[in-house]
Every structure is written in structure tokens, then in C-alpha cells.
Amino acid sequence: MIFAVLCKNKPDHLHVRMENRPLHLEWVDGLNEKGTLKIAGPFLDAQEKPCGSMLLIEAQDQASAEAIAAQDPYGKAGLFEKVEVKPFKWLYNNPGV
């Protein structure tokens, strides 16, 4: 099952994001290598600076998806104000269909 992981950065925490970016990218690369990651990238604010993240991941169930999301180095560093993990049905342009 696919899950959307929607993360909103805390205000004025761009420095936390940049400091932890290498660890975050390493983690995302690991998800990609395992086939868990389907899509990922940042949300941008009006100045085109990252203000959050979205990942589509494959997981067995809600609890597994939440456990994967909890491993994000950004989250562990306290970057996120809010994280939502929601089941997602990929209807259009799904390369796996």
C-alpha cells in the first residue's frame, strides 16, 4: 500500500533543514534502494525555499508507514511542526500499473 508522508517545517528552521540535509538524503537514498520510496521532494515557500517535504512510500500498513516516517533525520532533528501519514491511491501516471 502507498502512503503519503506530508511534513511541514517549523517556522524559521531552514538552518536545521540544511544542517541535517546530508543525513536526510542518505536516509531517502536508502529507502529508494529498498524500493520503499516512490517519490519525494520539498514543498517551497513564496521565496522558493524549502518549507516542508512530501514522500510517497510503500508500506504494509499504517503503523509500518508511520515507523518509516519516524526515522527521517529531519524529524529527529526537530525540523517538523507537523507530520501526517495518509493512505494514498496512485491513480494517474503510476509507473507500477
Rank of each mutant, 00 (worst) to 15 (best):
L56I: 08
E81C: 03
P22K: 09
G52S: 08
R21G: 14
F3P: 11
K89L: 13
L56M: 04
K34P: 01
H15K: 15
D61R: 00
K10L: 15
G75Q: 07
E26Y: 09
V85E: 02
H24K: 10
W90E: 05
N32M: 14
D12Q: 14
E58N: 07
S64Y: 06
R21S: 13
M54E: 07
S64P: 03
H13M: 15
K89V: 12
Y92E: 05
I68T: 11
E26P: 01
A4R: 09
G78C: 08
L25M: 13
V83P: 04
L23N: 14
Q60S: 11
S64Q: 10
I57E: 01
A65N: 03
L37H: 01
S64K: 10
V28S: 06
P50L: 08
A40H: 07
D29W: 04
G30A: 11
G35P: 06
A4M: 15
H15W: 11
M54H: 04
P87M: 04
N94Q: 09
D61I: 01
H15T: 08
V5K: 02
N9D: 15
P11T: 12
D72I: 12
G41L: 12
G78Q: 14
V16K: 06
L55N: 07
E26V: 03
L31F: 08
A69D: 11
Q60N: 12
L91E: 04
A40R: 01
K10I: 14
S53C: 13
W27G: 02
V16P: 12
A4D: 14
H15C: 11
D72P: 02
V85Y: 00
Y92T: 07
A59D: 02
E48F: 03
F43E: 10
A77Y: 06
L25G: 07
I68F: 03
A46P: 03
A46W: 05
V83M: 03
P73G: 04
G30P: 05
E58C: 05
M1T: 12
L14T: 09
N32V: 08
M18K: 07
Q47V: 13
E84F: 00
I39D: 09
N20C: 13
G52Q: 06
K8T: 15
M1Q: 14
G41Y: 08
D12W: 00
Q47G: 12
G30H: 09
L31M: 10
G78P: 05
E33A: 14
E66D: 09
G52L: 09
G35T: 06
S64W: 05
I2T: 12
